[in-house]
Simulated scan of single mutants.
Amino acid sequence: MKFLEGVVEFCAVAEVGNFTGAASKLDTSVAQVSRKVASLEKHLGVKLLQRTTRSVSLTEAGSLYFEQTFPALKSLENAQLSVSALQQTPQGLIRLTAPRSLSVKLLLLLCSMHL
């Protein structure tokens, strides 16, 4: 999926407004973010960011690309969080065999813990 290379970095720069903040957010170097964005721009054949010595702004193509890719990235992030949450929450059926008097006390105890 070569076409996805640099999308995360580009969206981070567009969201934060600079390469330094994007690198910090992604826990990587500014040079790495810059390389990835440049690679994405080369792949797309269009400039996404207007760079000056003091600022970074979105080009018209960059604005359009950001509007369409950012929600998709957020959706992927939410999907990952949802799947990860399944691993953290115990699930399934519990079967318990015990004398009736003990099982009633145990069920009452368990129910009181979740209230």
Rank of each mutant, 00 (worst) to 15 (best):
V104H: 06
L26Y: 03
V37A: 00
C111G: 06
Q32M: 06
V8R: 05
P90W: 05
T59K: 04
L48F: 07
S84F: 13
Q91N: 15
S24M: 11
K47C: 03
A14L: 10
V30D: 01
T52D: 11
L81R: 12
S34W: 01
L108A: 08
F66L: 07
T20P: 00
P71V: 09
L109A: 09
A12Y: 02
G92S: 08
K74E: 12
S24R: 07
A85W: 11
L44M: 05
K105M: 11
G21I: 03
A38N: 11
S29R: 14
S82K: 10
L58Q: 06
Q50P: 01
Y65M: 07
A31R: 13
P99C: 07
S34E: 11
K105E: 15
E41N: 08
T28G: 01
V46C: 04
L49R: 03
S34A: 13
V7E: 02
L76V: 08
T53M: 10
K105N: 14
C111L: 14
G6R: 03
Q50G: 05
L110Q: 11
V7W: 02
V33E: 00
R95P: 00
P90G: 08
A31L: 10
A98Q: 07
L102H: 12
F10H: 00
V37L: 02
S63I: 06
V46K: 13
Q32A: 12
P99Q: 08
F3H: 10
P90N: 14
V16A: 01
P99S: 10
A61L: 03
K25M: 12
I94R: 12
V13I: 14
T59R: 02
D27M: 08
